[in-house]
Structures are given as structure tokens and as C-alpha cells.
Design a protein around this nucleic acid. Sequence first.
DNA 1: ACCGATGAGTTGATATATCAACCAGCTCGT
DNA 2: ACGAGCTGGTTGATATATCAACTCATCGGT
Lengths: 154, 154
Amino acid sequence: MEERGLDDRELHAWRSFFRMQEVLRGRIEQQLQAANGLSNADYTVLVALADDPAGRARLVELGRFLGWEKSRLHHQLTRMCKRGLVRRESAATRAMFVVLTPEGRDALEKAAPCHAAHVRRLTIDPLTDEQIDQLAEISTAILANLEADQQPSR
Amino acid sequence: MEERGLDDRELHAWRSFFRMQEVLRGRIEQQLQAANGLSNADYTVLVALADDPAGRARLVELGRFLGWEKSRLHHQLTRMCKRGLVRRESAATRAMFVVLTPEGRDALEKAAPCHAAHVRRLTIDPLTDEQIDQLAEISTAILANLEADQQPSR
DNA sequence: ACCGATGAGTTGATATATCAACCAGCTCGT
DNA sequence: ACGAGCTGGTTGATATATCAACTCATCGGT
């Protein structure tokens, strides 16, 4: 009576995947929040910035890298600015940068091992080595398809 | 320099999974919204309600079934009430129910095939039959672990 | 030089999710 | 009977995500 077009096997796969992803995301979020006062979005931005040796990135680049809408990024950054995790810097020529502040770097370094352990416990440990690779392959397959299918923009 | 504790293989699996899940969820949401004016949350609730022959469910039950916090469910339902998709009904004895309205059932029936097709296109089609089963197994493994690990509440 | 298009960035409105506090009624042990 | 604690439900505050509209440069062509 719903989701016709998927047979039982497919429907089951989809539903368990979706449920799993939902719960997992929630747990990760809570853990980061409780232990480090960071949202997952915060953490993601921090990690991305730390990729750069100077902890600096242009807004567009960052947005493209994260696959985020510009406005989402903007709001996120203003929140992070308010908390002193990053700082905006306007270059001479019509370009905006974000820089990791020392506090931001600190927060990241404190959170990282804890987060990693949590991710491991929740998603790596319950899987066999094979399954880990399968998950990676499945994910990239779906991702590739998503990127092909429509929306090259962003 | 981040997420120590995961080796490259694991990190790669985690990141592609996470990215995939993020993009996928966004697409599904957009599609449902654009084509049927429903959020994924709306849709989920509608499907859950339609499980019952009378399209009725007790709040607690529904919450438990969806794995949602009571307050999340509450807010969601008031939004859906406002749009006429469901109706609240208070039983005599301190128990709250939600009922699918005809409009709600309608919306669901209109959305379902379209949604199913979209899910299929985005997540089933790019995978082999084997991978579909693998995904189901992986998901249930992680889910089982999540449910074991802490939080029996909700 | 000008106009239109595009791209980066900003803003505000709205929808959604999460959290903590609260308000009944119920139940249970004393 | 009474108070402590539990459960189901509600509320409001806040954080986050999404969307549309807007500004302001820059660029290309004429």
C-alpha cells in the first residue's frame, strides 16, 4: 500500500538502511554535542579547514568541498564565528575566507579522538572487514549515481 | 590529523558512507517536497499510519515505532494537523490518537509511487542484487549494535 | 562605454530537530 | 491516605536546514 515498485527485498534493504542512517546520525550528533559541544556540522567544517596548512579556505571552495549550499554555509559560519571557532577574513578582491582560530583548532583536536572512537564503535566494530569494504563500494556507487543524475550545480 | 583511530580503509568507508547518506537524504527530501509538498518526515508518518486499517495510532505507539522523541512527534503532528493531513483524537482515558484524514490518505497515495520510483532510481538501480542484500545486512548489523549500545529508552 | 548575465556572498522567512521544563494522572510502598 | 516517582503529553527556546530574494562585482559582447 506504499512504496510500490520496490519488491520486498528492496523495500527491506531501503527501510533498514534508512532507519540505520537516521539513528546513527542522531547518535553521532548527540555524542559530539554532549562530549565536545560541537554539532556534526561544526565538526565537519573544522576538519575541512584543518586540511589546509594555514587553516584557511575560501568560502566557495569550502562550500563546493562540503557540497553545501552557500546559504547553509553562511549561516553555519556565522554561528561558528559567534562561538569563536573560526574567523571571517575578507581579501582585497571580492573574496571571502574563513580561518580556523586557535580555539577552533583546539576544539577540533580535543574532539577528534573521541569522535573517531565513537564512529569506530558505532559503525566499524559491528561490521566484518569485508562489510566495511562493501559499505565503501556501495556508498561510492550510490554517490556516483547521485552526482550523475541531475544537479551538477551547487 | 583528524579522526585518528580509523585507518585509511575505515576512514574512507566512513566518509563515503557519510557523504552518500547526506546527499541522498537531501535529494529524497527535495524530490518529495517538490513533487508532493511533503517532507520526508510527513511521508514517514503517513506511511506508518496507513499501516493501521483505520489509519489510527496512539501517540506513544507511533513514537516508539518511528523511534522519535515524543516532542519531535508532537511538533510534527501539529504541523501535519495544520495542513489537514492528520487529525488528533483524544480518547476518554488519558490517551492521544492520531488519525489519517482522507486528505492525508490521498496525499500518501499520490506520493507513494513517485517516491518509490525515486528511491529505486537513486539507491536500488546503482547497486547489484548482491549489494542490495549486503546493504540490508550491514544496516541491520549497525542498527542492532546501536540498539544494544546504550539508550534502550525513547 | 554600456548592458545583461553570471557568480559570490548576504539576508530573512520558514520548516524542522533537539533539549529541557513542565503538567497531569497513575502506581506503588509505607 | 499520602507523597515519590513514572508515563504520556505539551510547550517554548534554540539550533539547524532550506528556500527565495537581494546586492554587488566582474565579465563578455556589442
